[in-house]
Design a protein around this nucleic acid. Structure first.
Lengths: 293, 293
DNA sequence: TTTTAAATATCATAATAATTGATAGCATAA
DNA sequence: TTATGCTATCAATTATTATGATATTTAAAA
């Protein structure tokens, strides 16, 4: 069976164009590399280098094998990296539940950084409506939840307030409310409101429906889609709708009794007493900063 | 540096649930495997097996590493397979030029078999109009061309007749010719014909245009597209249009003076004096059989 | 052309690692 | 309990790999 040492010699010698240079780089003597390469050639039955000149050049056969050799080396490097990741007590994977309205831009940018910092920790991302996340963290295998705050408490989980996301009232550009001045709740009442609530059918207290005619969605994206279809108006997260407002697809309803945007608090949720590794700690802090900044 | 022997022991022992069984399979003694595994554990700093029971079980850390170990083994197997492919004098790759009208079903099914027979020979597939293939084989790096026969000879290439493909006259279902009885060329003359010729602007002798009003395409697919757009009628390969005729998208023009479909001969083209390896020979024979059967 | 520096192949020797066979300690099933 | 089959350990052997010295070749510099 071929050895990884030999493969390493093959790749390095091919890159450097010199057995001696390869030996220096590997901290060995030149004859070791010379031997190693010729043993590999004997094992494979294939001449890998053309030694007719001063600096060894890969033969066509060597060229054909070097790609596979490189990926073999890369694979062995990754194997050792995973072992080191284990030694650092890094989790093998984290499962995160996120309200899809918070995915972009907050969570997604954090995850991008996470992938660079913990390349050997796998992420499983579960999209849930905020009211369902608490339950999922309490009962399921979810490590961190990122959600809009709930009033009700849950003794099995820890909540950590990290910041607020602005919600604004929006409708489609062609919706009747678009051109209208709204000075009181009664002005909104004649129009259908689209609201988000979880699949457990319990209406979240934070997002009180102020009109009698209401449709329910389990995600903010779905609510946005209904708004786009002129089904009704909705309170939606500013980051979700701001690009659409700029493109004049969605109209911001100026509710005059709202002096500033309605900020909904965002919580990080985690199971009480769960084991926390370095990847968890990093991710938790990164979420905190993302919503604070 | 870890050795592939140790990785092999890891994977095999995990599969068999026994160091002894692994040793028997590898033709070694039990203590060799025992040593190999514990050396690997020492190198990585990670305990891979739980030896508390009679049969060793992977620890969670071992489970996390075994996937990477398996793919490392697979990679090393592929490396050795490529070396053996070289020993069998198999080409590293073949470049084939095909008239796209012949790709399905003839060439594609042959290539499917080829991929199974020669998994380590890469294929580069070049789509060209038949009249351009001869030139490409003569001047370029193309090993085999599959094309409709040309009258003109070329001294740099060998032609090999392998069979014929039926061409029929077709138009769109809604094209004026669709409902019409065609008894002579003059019945076709009023309508625009779409014809295929190469990019060198030399009209192929085999596909003579019989109407004065002609549009040109460099591929049969493009010609079919124009027919679908009711631009005109065309002579097209039966395998290309038969599914569309069955779906009633395309209408077969029954030209009464054609007693049987017009069969256009298909040639395999190869460069004279080129080196031919086993993959080339296999592919050439497979093409012969595909068009003959 | 000659010289010089650096590269490779070869070989005997030394160092290292792997293999073996024997033994002892456990776990499991009869 | 006994018997079987497994693993860990150890010392001895064997095989493999690394080393250092040397001869030869190559390519650039003098």
């Amino acid at each position: 069976m071929i050895s990884l040492e030999q493969i390493n010699m093959l790749v390095l010698s091919a890159e450097l164009g010199s057995f001696s240079a390869c030996a220096r780089r590997l901290g060995k003597v030149q004859s070791a590399v010379s031997h190693g390469i010729s043993n590999l050639e004997l094992d494979l039955g294939v001449e890998l280098f053309d030694r007719s000149s001063r600096s060894p050049k890969l033969t066509p056969e060597g060229e054909r094998l070097i790609r596979s050799a490189r990926s073999l080396l890369a694979q062995s490097y990754e194997f050792e990296q995973i072992a080191e990741s284990i030694l650092r007590n890094e989790e093998s994977g984290l499962t995160i539940a996120v309200d899809d309205a918070l995915l972009a831009p907050y969570v997604s940018t954090v995850l991008q950084q996470f992938a660079l910092t913990f390349p050997y920790v796998q992420i499983e991302l579960v999209s849930l409506a905020s009211p369902d996340i608490v339950n999922a963290v309490a009962t399921g295998n979810i490590d961190i939840g990122v959600m809009f705050a709930e009033i009700e408490a849950n003794k099995q989980v820890d909540f950590c307030y990290v910041g607020g996301v602005d919600f604004i009232a929006v409708c489609h550009e062609a919706f009747p409310l678009a051109g209208q001045r709204v000075s009181s709740e009664s002005d909104l009442a004649p129009y259908r409101q689209v609201t988000v609530r979880g699949t457990r059918k319990k209406e979240p207290q934070a997002l009180i429906s102020i009109t009698p005619n209401v449709w329910w969605c389990s995600s903010n994206y779905a609510a946005l889609e209904l708004v786009m279809q002129k089904v009704g108006w909705a309170y939606l997260p500013l980051p979700l709708v701001s690009p659409l407002i700029e493109d004049n697809n969605i109209h911001k309803i100026d509710v005059v009794f709202d002096h500033k945007p309605w900020s909904v608090p965002v919580d990080l949720v985690s199971k009480k007493g769960a084991q926390r590794g370095p990847a968890y700690e990093w991710l938790f802090d990164a979420f905190k900063q993302a919503f604070a900044g």
